[in-house]
Amino acid sequence: MRHIISILIENESGALSRVAGLFSARGYNIESLTVAPTEDPSLSRMTILTSGSDEVLEQITKQLNKLVDVVKVVDLSEAAHVERELMLIKVRATGKDREEMKRMADIFRGRIIDVTESTYVIELTGASSKLDSFIAALDAGLILETVRTGVCGIGRGDRILKV
């Protein structure tokens, strides 16, 4: 099962390696990991996309909670939440492909944020599956480069992760 773990962690040097080290040492999956300071600069928020059985997920949250720098851990996917990922994708945009690329970006509500004679950089935000579909919809030969932030997410409504 796919899970999104949100972590509030002290914004100390090395905090990221404690989390990453835990995952590799115990053989847990990391599909994506994002981290940045929160509105309170002494705290970072980390979002990890992982997968595993219920037992494994229980261990992951317990082990994360055991890290001294970790303030809070929730499994976002346990309840209603929204998730987003950002992708920047550089594509070849020449000849008839130039118009086609523009059209595809529009359909997926992407924005072209950089233009040269032969390339576009398209910015696309959404659920990871949407980003996957966009990539699938393009002619693979025209994709020059992609970069994705990995998933970040937040609980809906009154579900709040705060100290």
Binding site: G14, S17, R18, G21, V68, D69
Partner: peptide, 14 residues
């Protein structure tokens, strides 16, 4: 030191 000992300490500090 912090890196080498990280997996075998409860916590470490520099």
């Amino acid at each position: 030191t912090v890196g080498i000992t990280r997996p075998c300490v409860k916590h470490n500090f520099l």
